[in-house]
Structures are given as structure tokens and as C-alpha cells.
Nucleic acid binder design. Sequence first.
DNA 1: CTGAAAGCGCTTACAG
DNA 2: CTGAAAGCGCTTACAG
Lengths: 349, 349
Amino acid sequence: MSARKTGLDATGDARPAAAPVTIQAVAAAAGVSKTTVSHVLSGNRPVSAETRRRVEKVMDDLGFSPNFFAQALNRNRSNTIALIAQDITNPFYPALARGLQAAVSNQDQVVMLFDAGAGEGALTHAFVADAIQRRADGVVIAVSDVDDDIARLREAGIPVVAVGSGASKLPIDWVTADDERIAADAVMHLHLLGHRRIATITGPLNHTPGKPRYLGYLRAMQDLDLPVEPEMIEHGEWTRESGFDAMARLAARHDRPSAVFCANDMMAIGALDAARRSGLAVPEDVALIGVDDIDAASLVRPALTTVRIPAEEIGRAAGELLLHRIAEGMTTTHRHVLVQHVLMTRETS
Amino acid sequence: MSARKTGLDATGDARPAAAPVTIQAVAAAAGVSKTTVSHVLSGNRPVSAETRRRVEKVMDDLGFSPNFFAQALNRNRSNTIALIAQDITNPFYPALARGLQAAVSNQDQVVMLFDAGAGEGALTHAFVADAIQRRADGVVIAVSDVDDDIARLREAGIPVVAVGSGASKLPIDWVTADDERIAADAVMHLHLLGHRRIATITGPLNHTPGKPRYLGYLRAMQDLDLPVEPEMIEHGEWTRESGFDAMARLAARHDRPSAVFCANDMMAIGALDAARRSGLAVPEDVALIGVDDIDAASLVRPALTTVRIPAEEIGRAAGELLLHRIAEGMTTTHRHVLVQHVLMTRETS
DNA sequence: CTGAAAGCGCTTACAG
DNA sequence: CTGAAAGCGCTTACAG
């Protein structure tokens, strides 16, 4: 660690931890049984107003807080939801986490965060093991290609909802954006603006969301009776550099496109640089549209037109699905939610 | 929720949850006592190789996984660290979370995430109550002005490390960036480039890090024997708009600065827009430097020179401090870590 | 409306 | 090297 310590300071008072007060202590002080204390706590059984008041006062005076583990051991419920995220450094996941927290916290659920760090599947396996061992009430899994992990969770009897895995072959609750429609809507938007020669810079085609966004482009072009030309299809790797290179190639053509649908914002920002480098004005010479609405999309000049994926809402929906599933238990029916995207028209189109 | 459901599909198999296998069951199947099973699990007592092998095989066959709550109830340890973050939507916090996870996960600790959602203190109080109730082994608190919450945690006997609270009056472990030096180093950088007329756009001055960054500016100007002129000090609110406005005012002066230290990147990006709007070339007419190194800093054109705060390292340091504190118990000495920032020289200076 | 007692699934002195 | 038993702090039939 390249940190420098500034040494110690010794002003602190070190009170020993307060004596842990148990339900037993409360019962004694209130002159009732543990049973009764437990019931004023849970409300599972009527307690006379007078007794209740007395017990509550004692709890307050003693600062009683029921032991979470003892409760969980009895109820066999952890009130904890695990979120396994692909890469928390990607703003999509924090927003997802926030929505999830919002949806489940009023049910007294807390979220346990696992960040796979954009790494390989090994970490995810470990996280799933943790979630099982800690008896999570449910897990939201926002990592792709993890059917085996999902299966393990279900064997352990833990409800799962997958995010962004319309791709999963497993019967399971999931919520995702409609990537194919996102792409189609982006193309429609360009078409409405008068563009006919529309290119695309795709992501990797073997995975979600690269593939559905590509298919959406194709579908829209066909629906609009626009010719799909192989020269108008460039492949990127989600990165700014790959977007730059792809756009440079398109710009160099004598029959260059008048508009480009980029499958994400990073590539679109790269494309923006390349366009200007090639002396093309945006949007006059080429219009550009991305997907995601990352922070930088609105900070860049000209500000990027893009399709926003409501990550927070996805998190909220995932939380609601999970709560349902927890309440219902495993059944044979599964819910799927497609969350609505929104077109953010800015300056590049 | 503005989502549309696509209905249900009914392909799933709904295997009932596997019968929970206990230590008792393992003991029976292996022909030993629970005591022995417990010890092969914990390694707290020698077990003959032969017995150990047999028990381990049974555990494997039965898919035994010890009940986390029963363990926690006995050991009085949750192996859980709570992270209370100001606003997980701000990229600083996810990076912090990642560093924290990295530091504590090899000690079998898991992180419980609480996102205060940039909201007021009420939520933080609730989170602290949760952390206490769930018997977190420790908490990292990355919210400012929460001395009362910190006090409650200490009363409950829970170790705390604060992030970014050099400001706290409490004797406590903390880790933070050296905001005053960050500002001073930024000014030094501009000075080295030949600038003498250096302005600043500050953040709010009543809090960390607005105040220390302002003080660092003052200190550096004095150290460099540069005059501190009130006209060269503009106050912003961390936002892009406030940066824009502040820069517009500076640009309008006949004695405008040749360089501006902006206390964060958002304001610097606003300043960049304003400078160009005023017909000033960056960095030829005005040089600009920010703080944070948000994603957009390198995506904007010209790319923003800034000072990077290593959030992930802060998280890692906080995790290490916390682990220490958990191991040592409350003592009267406290550790403080100042994490090293790094100058990212790009195109605006 | 209230209690005594069994039980949740582990760990850990105590004893051999 | 191994076990029987008490105990961690709750919840919940069962009984009154």
C-alpha cells in the first residue's frame, strides 16, 4: 500500500463494550417471562397494554436490541439479499444497487454486496457459496453466463432473479432492458431525422447485449426498407478506442454513412473524436447515437444523443420480483420484466 | 414502476429445497460425535487422520454447510463489515467498496452495503442501527458530519473507521486523501508551467473537502510568494453549472487569470465550457486543473488535467485499519492514513 | 392474557 | 484422540 501513515494519536477513551443485554435480562427487570418479552417484540400474540408498556420501557432503559443471530437461527431467515455484480466500477451497477436497496429495505432487508471486479467466473462461484452459507433470503445476480451458479442457488432453495439475462436458458425470474428494441428505436430516431444511410458500430456479438443490439439494428433497417450493407457494419469491443477506429474506417469510405448507431456510449465518444479528426462535423456531416447514458455522454461536446437504460428501475424491479418469490416460494411460473428505456436527444443527432 | 411485464412462462421445475443437513446428521452418518465433527470443521483440536477423512467424506457426500447463524451466535462474530456510503452513484464510493472488499475478503469478511443516497442524516442513523443490530464486526463510515453516529457505534463496541473525516473531532481510526496537499500540488504544477496569475474555483467552504482544498490553494500561493487576490477566488457548489458561472466571471475580467485551480472535475468541466464560450483557448489562454479524475475527465476534449484520488486504495487502507482494530480491540491509540494522490497531466494545462 | 419448556444448530469447557 | 452436556439468545407449540 503506497500510503504513508501519519502515526498515532492517543486521545481516545476506550470504554469496554457495553454489557450485552438479553431478552432474559429484560424479562427479569420487567417481572415477566421471556415468552412475553418475545411477544411484545414480535407482536405475534396479544399482550396487555399495561404489560406491554412496562416491557417496552425496560427495553428502552436497558437499550435492548434482540440478538440478530438468535432470531435468524430460529426463524431461519437472514433478512439479507445478496447482490452479485459484474463490475461495480461500471455506473450501471451502483444505480442497480440503489434501486434494489430502495425496493427491499422497507421489508427490513439489507443488501450484501459482491463485486466480481469484471473478473472471471471463479469469483462468482465463491460469492454464490458465500450467499448460500450465509443463508441469503434471495440473490440478485447481475453477471452473465452463470447458469451453473444459478442452478446451485436453486438447489440450495434460494430464490434468484437474474438481471440482464434474457439469454439464460434456465426457467427463472429476470429483468432486463429490451436491447433489441433499444437498437431499433435508435435507428428509427435517425431515420425520422431523414437519415437513410445508417451504419452501426456493434459490440462483441457472442454475448448480451452485443448480439441483441445488433439484431435490433438489422430488424429496424429491414422494417424501414433500408438496405443492410456489410460495409456499414463495423465491430467494436465496447471501448472508446475501438469506437474511434471503427468510425475512422467508416469516415474514410467514399460512400460514408450519414448517421451511425453505436452500441454503447464509450464507442460513440470514440466515434465522435474520430469524426472530428476526419474533419466531419457532428451532427451535420454524421449524426451519432449511443446507448447507456453514462455521465460523460452529457459532458462531452457536442453532447451525445443516447438511449438511457434505467438501471435504478431495473434494480427496483429485481427487488420486487425477489420479494415476491421469497413470499411465494419456488413455483413453476416465472416472471419476466422488460424495463422501458428512454431516448435522450442531445446534440449529436 | 414503469415496466411492462411480458407475462409468465411455465417451464420451470420446482424442486423443494434440499433437506438441510446439520452437524448432527453428519455425526450420525460418520459414527462420531457432534463434537468431533465440529472440530474437523474448525481445526480447533486435533482429530485423527482416519476420523478426519471419514467425516470429511460424509460432509462432502451430504453437501454439508454449517449453519451460519448458529456459528455466529456461538462465536459472537458476524464476519460482516458494513460500509455506509454517502452516495454510491458517485464513482468514488464504488471504487472505495471494491478496495474494501479486496482488503477484507481474505479474512472471510463480507461487506454489507448501505447507500445513503446523498440524502440527509436520518438514513445514516437507520443504517447505524442496522449495523449494530446485525452485529457487524466493524463499519466503514464514508459520510461526513456523523460524530453522533460514530459515538453510538463505539458504545455498541463496534470498531469504526471513518473515511475522509480528517474533520472528525473524535479519536478514531481514519483514512483520507490529503486535500490540502492536493490543492497545493495542483497550484505548484501550474506555477511550474510558468503561471503566476492563478485563480481558484472553490467548493463550499464549510465542509471537507471544500475547506482544505481552499486552504491548500492559499498556502501554496503564499509559499510561492504569489499575491492572493480576492478577485481570483470564486466559489462554486461542486456542480458543472457553478463552475461554468464562476469561470464566466473570471473570463470577463480585464485582469483575468492565466490558470485556474478548480476544486473538483465537475466544476472544471463547466469552466472548460465557459472558457471556450468566452473565446478563450485552453490551455493557451487559460490553463485548467481539476480534482478527482472522474471518468469524464479523460473523455472531454481537451482532456482535463486533474489530481486523482485513489479511492480503491482508500478502501483497502480502511479495510486494513478495520481488521487491525477488530483484532486489537478498542485501545486508546488510533491510526490515521493519508493516501497519496497523483497528478494526471493531460491537455488543459 | 401469560409461562415453562423444548428446540434452532452450532461451540466449548469439562472429563476421560 | 474423543464424547456427553451445557450453553449461545432467541421463538413457539403446549398448557393454563
